[in-house]
Design a binder for these strands. Structure first.
Length: 498
RNA sequence: GCCCUCAUCGUCUAAUGGUUAGGACACCAGAUUUUCAAUCUGAGAAUCGGAGUUCGAUUCUCCGUGGGGGUACCA
């Protein structure tokens, strides 16, 4: 049975690198009819962040990476939170202690630091010197009785560890690559390496899929499995996600948490699809994948070895692709929170009615029309509510330079004449016929009949309605704004010109 | 310092002991057009360096160089 797990630490909001690892875990499990689980690794009490665990759940749920076992969904191998598994770790470490495979260490942090500095100065690898290994029975008894703070160290085997890596071939870690590392900290909590392998063993994990930052600690893990006499799982180390400066992607690089991308308006389909291709490829030109297609296509053989820069340009492209694939009502629901948080609209008691800051009523239909127009233009959901883009739909009066009304080298009189004519045509149009199709027919027929260039009519009209040098065409805009607002804006433009 | 690891366009990547080194995003140009967007067409853009093996190396080997990771009572 294939079993994979995500094992994030609740030290911050769910990281996109973690999301990618989780995706691969999920895909591999699902591809092989296996199981995927979530375990929370919260053994560092000092770095624990309240809310982080919930953020992990929420992020995975948002992405649709549903786990078969986990803290909030239960399962037969729990608890799935490490801080609730102390008894298990204590029992396991006792075994090692009794067998002489682990020992207590009373060295102070200061001594350890001094030791390392000295080793480094001598050009040696820094490693624990084994001082407490030679403590006599009497010394040990006294120290323990005095309740002196101490850690439990693993007695690392002096041997070369090898591992046949599925993507890198044979990896060899010479004797001394790992030292007598700590198993249990002085606060009684286990350290990652220990809790991790104990849990993976008891949770029957078959494939450990994790970031490359763990590659160098592989000999520690191998040695632990060996000490316990357990078979170790397969290890797959994924290339790291890098920042623009090619460093391991971290908080310092700006937006790295899943929630940042949710807030910016990225769809889960897009983020997942983007992340899928950072370190893996299908071997074909196919780049757009549904989740089912990902599961179908995924395999370790096509994993990449080198780090991938997390560059948002392609994500934007994918996001706009997935946005275009959604219908208006879906997009309305998805973008509504952005309209509200941008302050363009506020809720009223009526769930299908909003108001602008200035108090103008905004209907669902109004918002859906805007979404329909912008759908082909936006990259992110937040763009739907970008004031620079759609602010004119919500403003009562527009602020723009008079010169903007002139298309190419038009004379003032001509602009005035065309806008006046547009006003006449719009006035004659019944409110019930005030649609983009009808308006287009009306205006274009007029320009055709009079021989006026399209731009001479449409540019000034568009600017009068939007106040912007770049915007959707005037018919679409008029369709949304409605007759009274259009006429008011034409009047406003004409005033500017006279 | 020590250990591990990686190296193809700006970015994500494909490919092979013999190719015009392919695709995508981005960028640029053109078409279309009332502006934007979209769409279509086209262009530019890469095998880190040096040896070796070989008829032939981007591919295999070695040495450099560069990048990354680890080196904690963090994960």
């Amino acid at each position: 049975m294939i079993r994979t797990r995500s094992a994030p630490s609740p030290t911050g909001f769910m990281h996109v690198g973690n999301l990618r690892t989780s995706l691969y875990c999920y895909l591999f499990a699902k591809k092989n009819k296996g199981q995927y689980l979530l375990r929370i690794e919260d053994t560092d009490q000092t770095r624990f962040m309240p809310g982080a665990t919930e953020d992990i759940y929420a992020s995975l749920r948002w992405a649709g990476l549903l786990y078969d076992e986990g803290p909030d969904v239960g399962g037969p191998n729990g608890p799935y939170i490490q801080s609730q598994r102390s008894e298990i770790y204590n029992a396991e470490v006792s075994k090692l202690l009794n067998e002489g495979k682990a020992y207590r260490c009373f060295c102070s942090p200061q001594r350890l630091e001094a030791m390392r500095e000295e080793q480094q100065a001598k050009g040696e690898a820094s490693r624990y010197d084994g001082k407490c290994l030679s403590l006599s029975k009497e010394e040990l008894i006294t120290l323990e009785a005095s309740k002196a703070p101490h850690v439990i160290r693993f007695r690392m085997s002096e041997k070369e560890y090898k591992y046949m890596d599925i993507m890198r071939g044979e990896l060899a870690f010479p004797v001394g690559s790992a030292d007598d590392f700590v198993l249990i900290k002085s606060d009684g909590f286990p350290v990652y390496h220990f809790a991790n392998i104990v849990d993976d063993h008891y949770m029957k994990i078959s494939h450990v899929i994790r970031g490359e930052e763990w590659l160098s600690s592989l000999p520690k893990h191998l040695a632990l499995y060996e000490a316990f006499g357990w078979n170790h799982p397969e290890f797959i180390h994924l290339p790291l996600l890098l920042s623009k400066t090619k460093k391991k992607l971290s908080k310092r690089d700006g937006d790295v948490s899943v929630r940042d991308y949710i807030a910016k308006g990225y769809l889960p389909e897009a983020l997942l699809n983007f992340i899928l291709l950072l370190g893996w490829n299908p071997g074909t030109d196919k780049e757009l994948f549904t989740k089912e297609e990902m599961i179908e296509a995924f395999s370790f053989e096509r994993l990449n070895k080198s780090g991938a820069v997390f560059d948002l340009e392609k994500l934007d492209w994918m996001n706009s692709h997935y946005i275009r694939g959604k219908n208006i009502s879906e997009l309305f629901s998805l973008s509504l929170p952005y309209f509200e948080s941008a302050g363009l609209i506020v809720k009223t008691e009526d769930p299908s009615l909003w108001k602008t800051a200035a108090g103008r009523n905004i209907s669902r239909n109004y918002l859906e029309k805007i979404v329909g127009i912008e759908k082909e233009r936006v990259k992110k959901l937040s763009d739907f509510a970008d004031t620079d883009r759609v602010g004119f739909f919500f403003a009562d009066s527009l602020v723009y330079e008079k010169d903007l009304l002139f298309w190419k080298k038009m004379e003032t009189a001509q602009v005035v004449q065309n806008l006046t004519q547009a006003k006449i045509l719009l006035e004659k149009t019944l409110e019930t016929e005030f649609t983009k199709e009808h308006l287009r027919d009306t205006i274009m027929r007029w320009t055709a009949e009079t021989g006026i260039k399209n731009g001479e009519m449409l540019w000034p009209l568009r600017v009068a309605l939007t106040g912007m040098k770049a915007s959707p065409d005037p018919f679409e805009v008029a369709d949304v704004l409605d007759k009274p607002m259009c006429l008011a804006r034409l009047d406003q433009a004409l005033e500017k010109l006279t």
